[in-house]
Design a protein around this nucleic acid. Structure first.
Lengths: 339, 339
DNA sequence: CTATGGAGGTAAAACGTTTTATGCAATCCT
DNA sequence: AGGATTGCATAAAACGTTTTACCTCCATAG
């Protein structure tokens, strides 16, 4: 009756059974203190035989690590709602992260938005955080910093460039996409980006502008909120065609790209015959569009695995390492293939 | 220096500032005890002004709810690896659940497999669990029960039919799929199911068999492990064609369906001209296949939202309700359209 | 005038760990 | 021989809450 609730067997039970003090058990389990090898071993055997597991909460009270990290996806927060359709890249990263966390003996807690209340009570007690695509002056990052909680980011944090704890993709994919357009001989390439101020948006646009400069093009940039989604991009198309249609459109997000392709079709403009379309993110909608849209594969599984590894090493107190850049790959599909 | 670590301000600080006892603060905050209305209000004001938040760990230590629920996806565990490709339905459910959990003030912890060690330390301290597609004699369910942890399931728990706490899809989608095949005039329909013993597999196969009986067909059932994936299904195709090809194939999982379509194509059998294919789960691969595969939309977002609502009411101690059945919808695509 | 009881409040014991501060032999040095 | 050191183990204090048990006052009933 005494210990039937949670986990059940407590450290006191183990101590009693092993004929030692509670302290001894704690030390034996955690490899601390100055116990003799035999005592240590004996305690471990007893503990194992009783199937003892230290209660995470009690342990956490003493500021020991909880074994759980948080995962917050900023772009989804920006979208205002968690409609996963077409944002499968985020979910794939999250899922890979969860798997990698398990291998590291960590749990992964999905925390939708850290700035909205009520906050999940445990949110600020977690061992650390993975912040996906933080934006400039990100309030979530600010909150974590103010609470001295360790965090790593997917994509550079634009407001804390000195913090090296991030994983991202290299720009090979984007470069290849632009090179593909160039090879096709198109001249005017329109860039359709999002409005969030995360590094992905910022860097991609910068790359586009630099590419325009080196190849002697005039940049033409349009921004559309991520939240507008496929629908919004589709409705935007007529305005893009006004006053001289571009020969190609680079849509950063897969959702926008799918909308653009749909909008072009609705406007009677044929893709790829009249306009080429490529996208910087290989979302599901890029693959299901007709034609299928050439896209940059950001390798979400690799990202998820890598970021967990980085967080783990940060939590272990390893000295700061350099940021990690994973390869991105351009996948050519029908939307940019004219032959 | 004293309180700079976590959350910061403690209940003792509030008590001191408000000029009352620690007990008074606790009672005021939690609406317990016998404080006067004024005292209660006063304490609340002081606590709010100090930005006090009760530490979740300390609170949890006294068996108060933690504000976090677990989510375990059995089919992914069965797959042995969290490769999200083609299993997007699970992730969409999880993501919708996370969003719904936030609205309810709960965090959602993704727990890959509750039976593998090391278990995330907090795993057994969570308030409750959502188990997606439990199988017969599911060890995860057994573990939860043995620890007296509340849980709800997505899909009926085959081994605990008396437990009404589950959400699932109705069979309208499957019925419509079979009806579509019937309307197309095909005679021999092969059923390709998975090997997991979850309710979805069991019930779908039963429905198929019943349909065969009522329509005077001879059932032909093949099982392929879910883990075999697209590849496995593709390799299976030749054996399915041996000794008289069926006129249609009902693949329960989207991954298998995609593999079957690919395998048919490789074998020189044309779909839908020679064989119709439909699937019971509208995974991404069903949509990206050529031809696109007719599929049952299981409405993952609605499932995720509903299951969180149910768990919440269970945790609130509401009396047991009936199971919830959400509509499933059949989406007809090229793979079953002959015209 | 003394019980009774409710209203309003608090002290102290839990919850299950980890950590800090000690304690006690036995061994070592000079 | 006497003090310092080492090796091993433990008691007790913390961690921040909630809960249990109890206290005091004052009004009301008998």
């Amino acid at each position: 009756m005494s210990t039937h609730q949670r986990g059940g067997v407590t450290i006191r039970d183990v101590a009693r059974r092993a004929g030692v003090s509670v302290t001894a058990v704690s030390h034996a389990i955690n490899g601390k203190g100055t116990l003799s090898a035999e005592t240590r071993e004996h305690i471990k055997v007893v503990a194992a035989s009783m199937n003892y597991r230290a209660d995470a909460l009690a342990r956490g009270l003493r500021r020991a690590p909880l074994g759980v990290v948080g995962f917050v996806i900023r772009p989804l927060d920006a979208l205002g709602e968690y409609r996963p359709e077409g944002v499968d890249v985020f979910l794939r990263v999250a899922s890979a992260a969860a798997a990698a966390a398990l291998d590291a003996g960590l749990g992964l807690m999905l925390v939708p938005d850290l700035t909205r209340t009520p906050l999940p009570p445990l949110a600020l007690s977690l061992d650390g955080y993975i912040v996906m695509n933080p934006v400039r002056e990100d309030p979530v990052v600010a909150l974590l910093r103010s609470h001295d909680i360790e965090y790593v980011t997917l994509g550079r944090d634009p407001s804390h460039p000195e913090n090296p704890a991030w994983v991202s993709n290299d720009d090979r994919g984007n470069r290849a996409a632009l090179a593909d357009l160039e090879r096709s001989g198109v001249r005017e390439v329109l860039y359709l980006g999002g409005t969030a101020h995360d590094a992905w948006n910022l860097d991609s646009e910068e790359l586009y502008r630099a590419w325009c400069t080196t190849t002697g093009r005039v940049p033409r940039v349009v921004h559309l909120p991520e939240g507008a989604g496929t629908q919004g991009a589709e409705e935007l198309v007529p305005s893009l065609l006004e006053g001289g249609a571009p020969e190609a459109i680079f849509c950063l997000t897969g959702r926008h790209a799918a909308g653009v392709v749909a909008g072009l079709s609705a406007a009677g403009v044929r893709c790829p015959e009249q306009i080429l379309v490529v996208t910087g993110s290989d979302a599901e909608q890029a693959r299901t569009s007709r034609p299928a849209i050439s896209a940059v594969d950001l390798q979400p599984e690799a990202l998820g695995t890598a970021i967990v590894g980085m967080l783990k090493s940060v939590l272990d107190g390893a000295p700061p390492q350099d940021p990690v850049l994973l390869a991105s790959r351009y996948r050519r599909r029908g939307s940019s293939r004219r032959n």
